[in-house]
């Protein structure tokens, strides 16, 4: 008994500074202490709004009025809306095409940037510009380029003889409008893909290429059997992030087409704003924005699992 009480007595005699130092040495205290600021931020800025959105989506919340729990009614009723069905389809078309183009163009650009180029640093910096410029500003530029009367895209196409005057009405016809918003999303998201993949490329040991070359592998074989397998992990992460960002895109569509023509470019975020904020139906608006949450959760789970498998 005497032995067991000894440390407590000794501890009590320590000056308070030494006690604090000793406590800080304990991982059990120090760990939570260091992570708590981040946890507080996550709880306040992510968890709380998310829980509120979840609650709204299960209620008939209307701005400034008392709300009641309605279960999954909002999610079920949305299927009756033509605009929502169109939005659901748009989201997959928009994300699918945008991600596919960003993968192909991102790898190509990264391979190009990995070469010994003149002004390499400046070029790498410039590639990041679309990612750095505020979206609202750059989309304004695109809006002018796709302007129905003074489109520089059409002007160039007509001058080169590849378009018949007056050229496509980019933002006024549904397939062209979808092409336009996908193009702007690819333009904006490409630097993220290219620079991240470039980081992956730089980390591939040169010896592997030398060995493959010694075995007689050509450029295509080297890319297929060396580069691509070693980029899989980076690609999975980039695609994961980009899928989430692209599904939840707002600025590009809101500014370029406002969801038109005839709802053909509406995405979940833009429709959610239209219903939830402009019309005051917070419940339905929240349900629209959360509709894909289970799907995205599954995508995140599957891709992270794949990445872990690759890593270990």
């Amino acid at each position: 008994m005497a032995i067991s009480t000894f440390p407590v007595t000794a501890h009590a005699r320590l000056p308070w500074r030494a006690r604090v130092r000793e406590m800080l040495d304990r991982e059990r205290i120090l760990g939570p202490l260091f992570t708590s600021p981040a946890m507080i931020l996550i709880v306040l800025l992510v968890a709380y709004p998310f829980c509120m959105a979840l609650y709204f989506s299960l209620s008939n919340a209307f701005i400034g009025r008392p709300s009641h729990f309605v279960g999954l009614r909002n999610f079920i009723n949305l299927w009756d809306s033509d605009a929502f069905q169109q939005t659901f389809q748009n989201a997959f078309v928009f994300t699918g095409f945008a991600i596919a183009f960003k993968i192909v163009l991102g790898i190509s650009l990264a391979l190009l940037l990995n070469q010994q180029l003149w002004f390499k640093r400046m070029i790498r910096g410039m590639v990041l510009l679309p990612w750095v410029i505020p979206t609202a500003l750059s989309v304004l530029g695109w809006q002018w380029m796709f302007n129905s009367s003074y489109s520089v895209v059409n002007w160039t196409g007509i001058a080169l003889g590849i378009m018949d005057p007056p050229g496509p009405n980019w933002l006024g016809q549904k397939y062209y409008a979808m092409t336009a918003v996908v193009a702007v999303n690819v333009w904006r998201g490409l630097p993220f893909f290219a620079i991240t993949i470039l980081a992956g490329l730089v980390s591939i040991p040169k010896e592997l290429y030398e060995a493959a070359e010694a075995d007689g592998a050509g450029p295509w074989a080297r890319f297929w059997y060396v580069t691509l397998p070693l980029l899989k992990g980076v690609l999975a992460i980039v695609v994961l992030f980009s899928t989430i960002f692209t599904f939840s895109d707002f600025n590009i569509v809101y500014q370029l087409t406002h969801g038109g023509p005839i709802n053909s470019t509406h995405l979940f975020a833009t429709l959610s704003r239209q219903i939830g904020l402009e019309s005051g139906r917070l419940g339905e608006g929240a349900a629209i924005s959360l509709y894909l949450f289970p799907v995205l959760m599954f995508v995140v789970y599957a891709q992270l699992k794949y990445v872990r498998k690759q890593a270990y």
């Binding site: 796709f146 129905s148 009367s149 007056p166 009405n169 980019w170 933002l171 006024g172 016809q173 409008a177 087409t257 406002h258 038109g260 023509p261």
Partner: peptide, 9 residues
């Protein structure tokens, strides 16, 4: 009219 009105803001 011109078809451009379909994309007007």
């Amino acid at each position: 009219m011109d078809p451009e009105v379909l994309s007007w803001t």
